[in-house]
Write a protein that binds this DNA or RNA. Structure first.
Lengths: 218, 218
DNA sequence: CTTGTTATTCACCGCTCGGTGACAATTGGA
DNA sequence: TCCAATTGTCACCGAGCGGTGAATAACAAG
């Protein structure tokens, strides 16, 4: 009686196999997509080999084979980042004439603010950058800042900052402010007592940002 | 021959017991200290029951008993935060006369910058705040912002911001910039292309900060 | 010395993690 | 047709995690 019912093979599933084709390129892409999606949606906390493999619907072994592990996969994300930025932040002046450095920085600030707000993956990467100091994240950070610097340089044209202002330092401050405020808003809908929920709140933030830029650059 | 050597009790350690006295208050304090130390030095990534217990040199069970788990412990850290801030950020004007709102904000900004730079625990908490959205971190965040707001209010005195400027929004931007730049520096010695290693670098950052504040508030 | 209380430790559970070696299935030439 | 490489799957490992129930050691009072 206590018999063979223990380890039965159950081929009940009709063999209507789900057309799981053999296609390395597609699988690599699926892994990369899953990694980006996971990072964007869940953050770097639960970001690991197992989670990515689950998300991609394949075995984790393939991640080792095709990317050499998580590090390689993260690096692939970094490589992707350049084009990513290009797709998401406009490269023209939006039909405006940027006459002064102040015009430029105001527009750049607002563009960057909106772009970061709209891009969860970027936000997660920025948060990662200020939370962990590993080789993985260093690579990502480098790719990101390079893409960003390239964009700024492209937009700058021949405009030059006013004399007597350390534009690099000031701009770093401004971009830091944008990044932090967007990160904070994504987590708690506010930053330093300033609400950041609806469009009206963001209007106020944008106005403050403009005021700061104009205060420095005129 | 193949005898009792298997499960021998080895009381080789000279019974010079390390005076592990029974003292609940002291143990609680040791746990709290270990938690703060661990959070400050290792960050929130590897922050867990086991790590804290190891750091405190006691069994994790005591953390459950005395604090009701990690959540309670984190809350205790939050409670500690008020006094913590008071100890670390001066409450007077440093012998200066703050005549205008601009004077005030300039001084507050620089004080906050230095305080955050000098306080690894605070930095870790801020990084935590922008990385994870849990109840734990929400509590911490609340405690921190409350302590900070109280400090600002104390310093403000009767000074009022100039008309026509949304001081709350602008100040949020300024504090966001400070927080982000300090976080970034602690991890990668730079932020948005601006080096942040030696004192000279920080001089530049401080100057930029002052310029921004003065640009807005005069 | 006994007894009860309190502080502290210990042993164990189930689970997930990153990582690896071996196996099965599919493909594309010789 | 058979072979070898490529693609994908599976089972398993050791380690660490958070969490819990029960044993143990130190103390205070009677």
């Amino acid at each position: 009686m206590a018999v063979a019912n223990t380890a039965v093979k159950i081929p009940l599933e009709t063999p209507v196999v789900e057309k799981r084709v053999r296609n390395r390129a597609a699988t690599e892409q699926a892994i990369l997509d899953a990694a980006k999606r996971l990072l964007a949606e869940e953050g770097f906390q639960n970001f690991g080999i197992n989670a990515v493999a689950r998300g991609a619907g394949c075995d984790k072994q393939l991640i080792y084979r095709y990317y050499g592990g998580l590090d390689g996969l993260v690096e692939a994300i970094g490589t992707d980042l350049g084009s990513w930025v290009k797709d998401r932040i406009p490269d023209d002046t939006g039909g405006m004439f940027l006459l002064t450095y102040g015009d430029l920085m105001e527009r750049l600030s607002l563009l960057f603010l909106d772009a970061l707000r709209a891009d969860p993956l970027m936000r997660r990467i920025v948060a990662w950058e200020v939370s962990e100091s590993s080789e993985q994240v260093r690579r990502l950070s480098e790719a990101r800042s390079k893409a960003l610097a390239g964009w700024i340089e492209r937009m700058r044209g021949s405009l030059v900052p006013p004399k007597g202002v350390d534009a690099q330092a000031v701009n770093a401050m401004i971009f830091a402010a944008i990044q932090h405020i967007v990160l904070a808003s994504a987590v708690s809908d506010q930053c330093a007592g300033l609400a950041l929920k609806n469009g009206k709140d963001w209007e106020k933030a944008a106005t403050a940002l403009k005021r700061i830029v104009r205060g420095v650059y005129g």
